[in-house]
Amino acid sequence: MTRILPKTTPDNKTLSGVIIILSLVLLLSGCASSLQKARLHLARAQEREKSFRTEEAIAFYKKSLEEAEREVRKRPSARAYLLKGLAEVKLARWPEASRSFSQAAALGEEKAEGWAREVSLLGLAVSLEEQGLSGPAIRLYSILSERGKFSPVVRAALGRLIDSQLELLPAVAEKEQEKIITKSIGIVEKALESDPACGYYHYLLSQLFGHRGKYRESFEEAVMARELGLPGLEIHRDNDNQIVFCYRRLKDSLAGEAWTEFSRTYRLWINKWKWPDEETPDWKRR
């Protein structure tokens, strides 16, 4: 025999209330957790970035982005878009980042407006350069690298500015080449004054000293870059190749005490990096 329950009893009311409250709590905690997770992953990424654990940092930026995207889908807010944009910037997804910052600004996040502008200007400069309009692109890179406030944009713009300057070298006379390199070194050194622990700036400086034939200085800057950490695998490898290149050039040019002193220093570093020999970085190990 089936026991028929009355439609409403005090127990049922309580139960319904508890279920509603629980559902609300679960719903709200679900909504909040994506934002919290995005923040947490972003903080972890930044912490790893500061200690030069680039790979782990990137993995956390990706996790942060996934959570921020989830949050934006569920409950769009200025904070969620800002977090999304920050993660996108770190993953070099410029157009997406610009859109996210614009959304954040539209929803009341003041600083996002300036970031959105800088990110979109960088995107514009890249696209101008791709379409062969290198003049305006260089001007934009120059403005962003000098006056930009958002460090990821400033670094990317500076790298592109230096590369575009170096591109001019083969077509100009030696005196003009020297001028361009000196000017470029000045630009990077100025950037280093405000961000001396940026491995990427040391990498740029190492490359510029290489252009000038100053191999000892180039080697020292490349070592600094390696020790401080570089933003990508290709740059890391390119920097290692620069170290080997400097070693070969110095081997040809130094003699006596100078060579003994350099080769002793060089061996200390490559032992630290676990290179099998002077001309083989660890990732080229056979």
Partner: peptide
């Protein structure tokens, strides 16, 4: 496409290319 786009400097000195 990273090599073709951002951050690694594409323009190397002649000596580096030769090496």
């Amino acid at each position: 496409k990273v090599w073709l786009e951002p951050e690694t400097l594409k323009n190397k000195p002649a000596e580096f290319v030769l090496d």
